[in-house]
Computed example of a mutant assay.
Amino acid sequence: MGRLARAGLYAGAVMGPFGGAVTTSILPEIGHTFGRSPGAAASTLTFYLVPFAVLMLVSGTLAQRWGPQRTVRIGYVVYAVASALAASAWTFEVLLASRALQGAANSFTTPVLLAVIAASTPKEKLGRALGLFGSMQAAGQTSAPLVGGLTAEVDWRLAFVVISIVAVGLAVLGVPQTDTEPERDASLRSAFVPSTLRPALVAFVGWACLGGLSFLVAFRLDDVFGLGAGERGVLLTGFGIVGFLTARQVGKAVDRYGATTTVVVGTTLGGGLIVAVGTSPVAAIVVIAWALTGAAAQGVLVSINALVLQSENANRGGSVSVVQSLRFMGAAAAPLAFVPLYQSHPLLGFLVPAALLIMVPAIVTWSGRGAGTRRTPQPQAPPPPR
């Protein structure tokens, strides 16, 4: 059961992003079923992400109180029920409610899985373990539109049937046992400390300016190069594929060079690639640069998770939960922040996020370097003899 539970730990990394993104390619079919436009059907994404991001501000701390095994099992059971409800939704409002319930359940699994990885992995190998987790998340994000589209050839509801069955299996497997006991007195305040808020700010900026920028890339591929929706969709998947292929290598770099160094390298590289995406007159270069941005995004995410989980904060589950929440809030804020810039001048839509990527994480991360570390007391000389 130990090995199976360990496998379930990483399979759970696939489930969250997969469930969130599974409707992206089947919005027209969903809209047709309920007599809604594809634009209205896109609210199935919002109804998943909002409760997911908001509840993660507190879900990690609550999981610390309840214990990871019980929390994850309950989360998967609720996820399975919500997915079954989505598969059988008889009105659009029921589908939206089921998506919100899916997002809420996922908020009680993803951060807990990360905390269990930290508790069950030697510190010198934590980066590699988090890299594997990141690659599984990228696999879920990348494969969801493909699987959703294939099932929609028969009936889009089948995608949710599959998700429900997998969630039941994950609930049976649970997560590996650790030596960490539930923290009955874990407080929400203990997660909102500087050693958490600094990485959370970097996660907010990093994901808003990397993963959250895919819509602007789609705009440019349409406006400048005249690519159709199908072509744009295929080309944008390069981000997730490269992220999947490089996440484990990023984890090894974290173990070797440290999370502070790798997060700054990741954001700086990402900023340069975003400039190339926004300025290159050659479509092939835009596509390649965007794909490589997936590696930079993993450099940020794996490093940020390592920074939090390697900290001395006892409420690590609550801390990583806050960081993940800010990450997805950054993605939600990206359209509001960057669409007006792109409409004002297309270059601004890319140059501003690139500048934020290069400046903000470097300032925040390096200014906090060493914060929270303990100084070793120096031995004092004995008093002089009288």
Rank of each mutant, 00 (worst) to 15 (best):
K123E: 14
S190V: 12
M15G: 04
G317S: 15
A80L: 07
L307K: 09
P353T: 10
A203H: 05
I358T: 09
W90G: 15
V254A: 06
S135H: 05
G169L: 09
G230W: 09
R220D: 12
I30K: 01
L213C: 06
R128K: 03
T279R: 11
A152I: 04
M15A: 12
G39E: 09
G230V: 12
A337N: 14
G278E: 14
T61W: 06
T151Y: 13
L9R: 02
G169P: 02
Q102L: 15
S59W: 08
A41Q: 13
A296N: 08
R256D: 05
T24S: 14
A159Q: 14
L210T: 15
F47Y: 03
S98G: 12
P379S: 12
Q137V: 02
P17F: 07
R70W: 11
V81R: 07
L57A: 09
I30W: 05
Q378M: 11
A167E: 11
L95Q: 05
F219Y: 15
F133A: 02
Q141R: 14
Q378Y: 02
P111Y: 05
K123S: 13
T71A: 12
G19W: 08
P182T: 00
F350T: 06
T293D: 01
G103Q: 09
P122T: 10
S325A: 14
A86I: 04
P182I: 04
A289N: 08
Y10N: 06
L55A: 12
W90F: 11
I358H: 01
A354C: 13
Q298C: 02
G243A: 09
V193S: 03
S25A: 13
G212L: 04
I274A: 14
T246R: 05
V116E: 07
G211V: 07
K125A: 03
V116W: 01
L309R: 04
N305K: 12
A332Q: 04
G149I: 05
Q380F: 00
Y79S: 15
P346N: 04
S280K: 06
G272A: 12
T61C: 03
L114W: 01
G39Q: 05
W66F: 15
T61P: 02
A331D: 10
E93A: 14
V202A: 15
A11E: 04
G278W: 13
V234E: 13
T261E: 11
E124R: 11
L49D: 01
T24D: 11
P38L: 05
R36P: 05
G140I: 12
G8R: 15
A296W: 01
G134R: 07
V286P: 06
A306Y: 01
S325Y: 07
V323D: 07
P38I: 06
D185R: 11
R189P: 04
A218L: 02
G278D: 11
A191T: 02
R374N: 00
P382C: 03
V166Y: 03
T262M: 11
A80C: 02
L188D: 02
Q137P: 00
A334F: 08
G271L: 01
A86W: 04
R73G: 02
P382I: 08
L126K: 08
V265T: 13
S321V: 10
A247R: 11
A105N: 15
R65G: 09
T109E: 05
S280F: 02
A100P: 15
V275Q: 01
P28L: 07
G211S: 11
G251P: 09
L101C: 08
G75R: 08
T178R: 01
G372K: 12
A138N: 03
